[in-house]
Design a protein around this nucleic acid. Sequence first.
DNA 1: ATGGTGGATGGTCCA
Length: 255
Amino acid sequence: MKIATWNVNSIIARQPVVLKWLAKEKPDVLCLQETKCTNEKFPREGFEKLGYAVEAHGQPTYNGVAILSRKKCADVRRGFPEVEDPSHARLIAATVGGVRVVNIYVPNGQSVGSEKFKFKLEWLRRLREFFDEHYWADDRVLVCGDFNVAPEDRDVHDPDLWRGRILFSKPEKDALAEVKAWGFTDAFRLKEERGGFYSWWDYRTGAFRRNDGLRIDHVWVSEPLAEDCARAWIDKEPRGWERPSDHTPVVTEFK
DNA sequence: ATGGTGGATGGTCCA
């Protein structure tokens, strides 16, 4: 089974490149973040023609997540169990092919110390609690999405420039490490130890041309899935296409 | 120190 994640920065604006990539890569599951539209406005038809069912959890203008799947999705959950702030559509989960897929869009946090930064840390704390409440470490659980945190120096093009800044500050890395300590393994790091692989490049400053990127999009898996992980990689190609997202897909394959 | 670009939206907010 092939499972991928991609922050598309508006699914309406990005439908052409997402369709192109699906036709090329043919994943079983594609998790999307920053769809930026309501479930009613989600452009389903093109994806359904390619054989994908759409499970969306969106809102107007901001955030929004969705799962595209060739196989049937069961037990779809939208948001945390309690009454979540309805202005934040950031989590959708579904069971596909025996895997519990949790697709997340972690708050960006804007700048270290801001109100949005506090919200990001609190959201990550709640996420750890969510896994504690719902799953066992020997379940086949996969969490993927835009985590908005680069975990280590080798995930950042210039760690000394980024150290202490949003996406690479210690409180964020610590909060994300607490989620990981639930029992997750970074699928990408099972297959690649070197630095220089990124999933996001700022639109500004021509970052992509210089490969000035950060690895902030991740696929993490529980132990049973880690044992079955056959491949994991970042597909840089769509970042170079016409009218790209500022993120590119992260792809995994399981036996 | 600031701004650079892109998307939704219709003056700004967000990333």
